[in-house]
Structure formats: C-alpha cells, structure tokens
Design a protein around this nucleic acid. Sequence first.
DNA 1: CTGATCTACAACCATTTGGTTGTATTTAAC
DNA 2: GTTAAATACAACCAAATGGTTGTAGATCAG
Lengths: 116, 116
Amino acid sequence: MVVDQLSDHEVDRLFHALADATRRDIVRRVMRTESSISELARSYPISMTAVQKHVIVLCEAGLIHKFKQGREQRVVGRVDAVQRAQQFLDSYEQIWRDRLDRMGDLLGEPTPGGKT
Amino acid sequence: MVVDQLSDHEVDRLFHALADATRRDIVRRVMRTESSISELARSYPISMTAVQKHVIVLCEAGLIHKFKQGREQRVVGRVDAVQRAQQFLDSYEQIWRDRLDRMGDLLGEPTPGGKT
DNA sequence: CTGATCTACAACCATTTGGTTGTATTTAAC
DNA sequence: GTTAAATACAACCAAATGGTTGTAGATCAG
C-alpha cells in the first residue's frame, strides 16, 4: 500500500504547510476550483505578497500546482500530496496496532483482529 | 464518520507538532513503547530541555499523554490524535472527489463511483 | 501607445521556534 | 541524611516565519 517514501525534510514541509489556517483554506479552495493568486488574495485580509508566499510554501510541499496562463499564475490542488500525508499517518496508526497486538500476545490472547 | 470537529487553532497545533522530525520520532517511539523524558533524551543529540519542549508541544497537540510516576515523567502516544488528523485529511480528499464528480456531471456522465 | 492588472522580488520588521546553559526542586537509593 | 537522578523553569540566542511596503516587469484592454 505504501506508494512512495518521503524524506524527513519532505514530511517537514508537508506538515508545516498544513499547519496554517490560511494555507489550509487555500488548499481547500484550489482543490475545489482552480484559481489565480489575485483571486485568492481577494478572499483574505492580508496582502497579495503574503498570499504569494503561502502559495510558494504550498507548492514546495507538493500540495498545489502552479502554472502560468498569460499574466496570471493559476493554482490547482494536488490530492496526491494529501494522500501521501494520509499514508504517513497510517503508519503511525499501524505502530499503535502492533503495540496492541504485542500486549495481546503478552496476555496469551489469540490476536482478535490480527491477519494470519 | 466525523467524530469531532477541531478548531483552526487545534489543527494548527496538531500539524505543527508533526512538522518536526525529532517530534515525529518521539511520537513513533512512545506509540510503540511508553517512555520517560530522560530515556527519550538519551536517543537524541540535543539537550534534555530541548526534548522536554518537544514533549510539551506534542502534549498540547494531543499526540501524547504525560503522567508523573515517582520522579519520572512518563510519556505515551495517543492514537486518537493521529486519527483526528486523518479525518481532517479525508475531508480534503472528499473535496477533490466532489470536484471530479462535478466535472463528470458537466460531461453528462453518470458519476461512476458516486453513491445514490 | 497608454493605462490598468497580475505577478515577482527585495528589504524590512515583530514574533515564534528550536536550541542552549544555569539553577532549583523533587524523589530514589544508599 | 547525603548523594545522584529526573524534572522544571528562567534567561538567553540565532534562525525561521508571517507579515508589511515599495519597486519593477509582463501582459491584456482600449
């Protein structure tokens, strides 16, 4: 199920990009509807430069894709980055489940939900 | 499926806590095995104070639970915070799927995987 | 061509972050 | 009762973050 392994630094950037409400809102918006930077900027009480910087952070994290169209910079969401983050969190859940299994083993129980 | 709604600030803290490799490693470790702060500190090339601060950040994000045991501060992972993060990312994936559905509608296709 | 719009980028600033060292407190061990 | 260990916490520091303003370059409309 693991499609791709991310480096520590890539995971840093991914979660850091998600750790800001404005950036999360931008991701939600462009996941729904492709948009330009100035269109985005009109929605937030901050300067266009600030929005631009958020877009750069999101782009470096792989959460969005930018492409030039005339004088506009179009921005669109990338669901694959979200899925990579999910896979990453899945591995944490798995560690937890493994721990429960080991605790079950210690009690001599026949691991209820275990595969095998 | 949504168990709990998190405030912007809570989501900020959750993802910010995950945006650091040392903190992620601590979460992985205590998800596997409960541990004390000084035990953790021995694993990293940073001071115990630095580890303590990471533990505080993780605790405020809900990713770990601390409790005193004698002179030790025991730390254990909390899988429910990971699951809340997953639910959050699920909603992003859903937005993407809704977009695909809408694009399908525009083409007059009978939404292949759509429920109904 | 001119003007308006969209973007890019440099420079600056306050705050937060991730680290340090040093000191004090609690608790276990002898 | 000392001593050693584990933690707590204050004070400090450099770098990163999230914002600003100002200036300059493309590009579209009339």
